[in-house]
């Protein structure tokens, strides 16, 4: 424990303010979406990069600390780095924009989505990452997204064969049930003078 604390403070001192999350983006996402957002949108741990829990700096192995330091040097876009305290979205941001641009964007968080672009959809739920950022939903969880967008996307995705078969099955079942009702009416009304849906109370 003491060793880990030592590592933590060593790293924090080394990194200076770079070790902090960028709450500007979090605040912006929360403000435009009306949804509560925490650090887990881009980081591994929901409480941000500093701490002793899994996914935080205090828990990194020496190899991961090396990765972290090389990721910190990725100032230009397109560098193949993997930051162990960031999740897939955080790393995609770093790779697409580069650290320098991200630091600039902290002052204009409203431009992050445009700068990142609307093509990438990491979790494949049909809502692009940039939209998930603007809508305050989790860009790496396919089960989380703006409900309507998710619904229409999945409707298209499962239209064939799942929904087609299910609708066919239901239609067939209702057709059968309906005819069965008619059949019962016919066989049970046999002999009664007037056919019809209703009997009389006994």
């Amino acid at each position: 424990m003491a060793l880990r604390v030592a590592i933590l403070f060593g790293v924090a001192a080394l990194a200076g303010r770079g070790a902090h999350a960028y709450p500007e983006f979090q605040r912006y996402s929360q403000q435009v979406s009306g949804r509560f957002v925490n650090c887990a949108m881009c980081h591994v741990h929901p409480d941000g990069p500093i701490g002793l829990k899994p996914g935080q700096i205090g828990k990194l192995t020496p190899a991961e600390l090396g990765q972290l330091n090389s990721a910190r040097g990725a100032f230009l876009p397109g560098q193949d780095v993997m930051n162990p305290i960031l999740n897939e979205f955080g790393n995609a941001l770093l790779k697409k924009l580069g650290k320098k641009r991200i630091l600039e964007l902290r002052l204009q968080p409203d431009q992050l989505a445009d700068a990142y672009g609307y093509e990438s959809d990491i979790d494949g739920d049909g809502v692009p990452d940039a939209h998930e950022f603007l809508q305050g939903t989790d860009p790496v969880d396919p089960q989380n997204g703006a409900p309507w967008a998710l619904f229409t996307h999945n409707l298209r995705r499962y239209a064939f064969p799942h929904l087609f078969l299910l609708v066919t099955a239901t239609a067939l079942g209702l057709f059968g049930m309906n005819n069965l009702l008619k059949w019962f009416h016919q066989t049970m009304d046999k002999g009664s003078p007037e056919p019809g849906a209703t009997g009389t109370k006994h």
């Binding site: 997204g145 409900p147 998710l150």
Partner: peptide, 12 residues
């Protein structure tokens, strides 16, 4: 199939 119940809530 199409609308995860949890999508109505904040992910944290």
């Amino acid at each position: 199939l199409c609308l995860p119940f949890e999508s109505f809530f904040s992910f944290p």
